[in-house]
Amino acid sequence: MAFYDGLFDALGLRDWCDQGEDAGPMSMADLLNANNANATDPNAQAFPFPSLDNLHEVCGSIMQTRDFTSGIKEAFLAARPGLKAFLDPITQPLSWMLDGALWLFTETPWWLLIIALLALTWVASRSAATVVLVGITLFVLAFIDHFEMAMQTLSIIFVCTSICVVFGVPIGILMSKFDTLRRMTVPILDLLQTLPTFVYLIPLIFLFSVTESKLYGIAIILYAIVPVIRLTDLGIRLVDPDVVEAADAFGMTGLQRLIKVEFPLALPNIMAGVNQTIMMSLSMVVIASLVSAPGLGRPVLQGIRELEIGVGLVAGLGIVMLAVILDRASKAALSRVDMTNKKQ
């Protein structure tokens, strides 16, 4: 480990290094080393990588890696009160919406809820086959006593998807109009899409209390909003330039062009984005059961924790069934709005 000693001496930094010698608390590794002072470290290399820990050994003023991670934690904790004061009020409506939806979906009598869901499927898809599929699935879920949990999951998905659409579509439209905004937004979307789903939860647990529903609401929205933004942007950009030119040639304003031409023609792509958003909400709502999200994710988690294979698998199957009906219903709605495809 003495490889870097010469380097610090040559640079004349020896005094500076020695000042920090006893500054930090002893790490477990140091303690062990102190006990085995006579034994040679079997992992010692002739030319170690100049990492923080290795440099710290020869120069006490250089911080250790654990100081670096705890520094990040300190910075986060320092920023927490400010962030919380700002984020708490603006995200509070999300908690109300989630709690309200959960109350509505669990307090409504089962038969009324099923009728309402079937009616909603019909309005969205106008497809009898889809309505029948949804009906059968709901009955099976109810029959195996998973109806209430499925409805909790569904209510969270409804709220989160609606919020994703309300924010995602306008963001996507703005991105398609302003290239600078697009250049700034795309890296953020990439980040949101590639972050492992568990990582979302870490800063959120710091910021909000685990008993608040907005905690998992925010995690789901951040994860699921990406496809609807991307596909709205793409859909508007893909509108036939000849048709857009015709709209200009007949003297439409920018807003008229957007409402009468670009948005309707981009709608199939936007709906594909909504479909993806719904599916991603579903996958996240399962993971969010780690932070107290109710629904079908809980028995899955229980299955893992307590090795209750049956409980976990049945709940998992319930999630698949929910995914199938959500996908079919939203795709049927998609093909209904796809005028260009339908009228051939």
Binding site: D242, E245, A246, A249, G251, M252, V261, P264, L265, M339
Partner: peptide
């Protein structure tokens, strides 16, 4: 004024028709 001109004074017919498909 340009929009007014396009609306009222000049109309255009396109090679690829450019009708609104919806």
């Amino acid at each position: 004024d340009l929009r007014k001109l396009r609306q009222e004074k000049m109309s255009m017919v396109f090679q690829k028709f450019a009708l609104l498909p919806h």
